[in-house]
């Protein structure tokens, strides 16, 4: 049987975007240290239901750190204190008995709040739709081994492709910049030979959409990299900076 701890939670509660929200204090009693942060919230929610208080709404799904749905800022840190860990994989053994824990939603203009700790991340969808794909008509693909891809390129593309799209980078960035997300998407495809034909327009359109969605600008704080559960490196942002300028230049030249 695992140890248990008691915590004081300060949870952001807000019925919807147009009603102001506030922190509400809830005790979290007898929390097993082996349980995850979300399981702790489940336990707290069960006690709220027993008191006829509406449970706290929070996004979650796979609970194994891959779907990117969970999205909590815990004591000012997106996904909490453990490095390379989503909220659902953060275990209570990393907290001490008696701790006060602030739980907040992702905060960014581009991620409007829906309810309590749930925000709307469809801005990422629109960025993806702007160019985060390779136009390969189904059925027309050549044999996979017809174009060898050096292992290091494939590995590097995989490093970028590991992004789970949770938005912690935006949440953690003091400017709410989405550069880590966008750079991962652009780099993944720019590193592969299949991604070359659309490389220019992809970078230009995705960055343009990112800007239009109201994300801030990257000022190289690297807070994003520090909280990223998929360990996406900020060197991809550097890659995107270069990629975008060359793409913009190519596009400008082609218009002449």
């Amino acid at each position: 049987m695992s140890d248990t701890i008691n915590l004081t939670l300060k949870v952001w509660r807000q019925p919807n975007a147009s009603t102001p929200g506030k922190f509400v204090e809830y005790p979290a009693k007898n929390i097993p240290t082996d349980c995850s942060f979300l399981e702790m919230l489940d336990i707290v929610n069960e006690t709220l239901v027993a008191q006829n208080i509406e449970p706290v709404a929070f996004d979650h799904d796979c609970r194994e750190g891959i779907c990117g749905m969970c999205s909590l800022v815990i004591n000012g840190v997106a996904h909490g204190p453990e490095k390379a860990t989503t909220t659902c994989q953060l275990h209570m053994r990393h907290f001490k008995d008696g701790d006060t824990v602030y739980v907040e939603p992702w905060r960014a203009v581009a991620f409007p709040l829906i309810k309590d700790l749930v925000v709307d991340r469809t801005a990422f969808e629109r960025i993806q739709q702007a160019g985060g794909y390779i136009s390969a008509r189904n059925g027309s693909a050549p044999d996979s081994n017809s174009v060898p891809i050096p292992k290091q390129n494939a590995d590097c593309a995989m490093d970028a492709a590991a992004c789970i799209g949770c938005g912690a980078c935006v949440a953690a960035c003091p400017n709410s910049s989405a550069m880590l997300f966008v750079s991962a998407k652009v780099s993944h495809l720019a590193l592969l030979p299949q991604g070359q034909p659309e490389r220019t327009r992809r970078a230009v359109k995705m960055v343009k959409t990112m800007d239009a969605e109201g994300f801030g600008n990257c000022t190289n704080y690297y807070e994003c990299e520090a909280v990223c559960p998929a360990e996406i490196k900020s060197s991809f942002i550097s890659m995107l900076n270069r990629e975008y300028v060359f793409a913009a230049a190519r596009e400008a030249v082609s218009e002449i």
Binding site: G76, R107, A108, P174, S176, G216, N217, E223, A226
Partner: peptide, 18 residues
């Protein structure tokens, strides 16, 4: 622009990198 992108700050200021 950056200030406009994040009008509401977190209750706990806890920078991890910058």
């Amino acid at each position: 622009q950056n200030n406009a992108a994040k009008p509401q700050k977190y209750a706990v200021n806890n920078p991890q990198a910058g």
